[in-house]
Amino acid sequence: MSLPVPDIDDVNRLYFEGTASGELRIRHCKRCESLFRFAHAWCPDCWSQDLDYKLASGRGKVETFTVVHQAPYESFEDRIPYVIALVELEEGVRMMSNIVDCEPDRVEIGLPVKVAYEQRGPVMLPMFTPDV
């Protein structure tokens, strides 16, 4: 298995079209103003299907993290140790990512981070680096 590449589908297409041009988009409900990840075909707060998106600032902080020393499968062997984090974006939305270009020891809860991108197959993946 090579490094996993997301499947582009109807729910996430606008998200990955955004990352391809350096935009980090978050789903916005036009009815109740909720913001959420591109993981829902409707607003999870009011079920409206009248959605658009907002541009995130790309800044946030580490809400929690783990340093992976044992790779789940071969394709991640080259990357260990790598950091998986849940990042809380300034807009209040939580997302999973990797913290890159940073010694794992430096990562802590509350660390300010900003988005960076990694090419993965045909997709640009949002990653985060310390925002210093």
């Binding site: 997301p6 499947d7 789940p72 984090a85 990797n98």
Partner: peptide, 26 residues
Amino acid sequence: CDYNLEGPYGPWIAALYGLVATRFMH
């Protein structure tokens, strides 16, 4: 996990629990 929005970052069972445990310890 969510294959498209989480899977690319290399999570597995222990790592996902690690995220919860790190926050709990903190």
